[in-house]
């Protein structure tokens, strides 16, 4: 467990981390979220709003939807979205006429990028489920 001193140091360091500072850097950072949409918080994406609401209501038994229930629903929809992207990557990179080693190289590179989003969504759902 972090000590009070460590926590204070972390907070000070976090304030220094303001992301890219130059105009060009900020522009690149802004475009990251647009490349595949996974960097955008799914809870703020209108495309998934209805599914998140529906799942949150189902999980709470139509009672009041708590913050943790909503977070579980968001993380679950995120996981389902990531799995569909992974399936699309298989179809795009693996099931083609290219030689097998080339297909695998492209597939593995794409999966490596996707993995951190899946890991994040999975951990988020785990935390939210435990808090429910």
């Amino acid at each position: 467990m972090s000590s009070d001193r460590q926590i204070a140091a972390n907070r000070i360091n976090a304030k220094k981390s303001t992301g890219p500072r130059s105009k060009a850097g900020r522009e690149v950072s802004r475009r990251n979220a647009r490349r595949h949409g996974l960097a955008i918080d799914i809870g703020n994406d209108p495309v998934f709003h209805d599914d998140i609401e529906k799942l949150a209501r189902a999980l709470s038994g139509d009672a009041h939807v708590s913050e943790h229930v909503r977070e579980t629903a968001e993380a679950e929809i995120d996981l389902l979205r990531i799995r569909k992207i992974r399936a699309w990557l298989y179809d795009t990179h693996y099931f083609t006429d290219a030689a097998l080693p080339n297909r695998l190289t492209e597939l593995n590179e794409s999966f490596a990028k996707l993995e951190r989003y899946e890991r994040r969504a999975f951990s988020r759902r785990k935390r939210a489920l435990r808090a429910m």
């Binding site: 529906k54 929809i77 992974r86 399936a87």
Partner: peptide
């Protein structure tokens, strides 16, 4: 699963 959950789960992520 119930129809409501099936709707949310959507099509399974199948390939090839």
């Amino acid at each position: 699963p119930t129809n409501e959950l099936s709707e949310v789960f959507g099509e399974p992520a199948l390939v090839g």
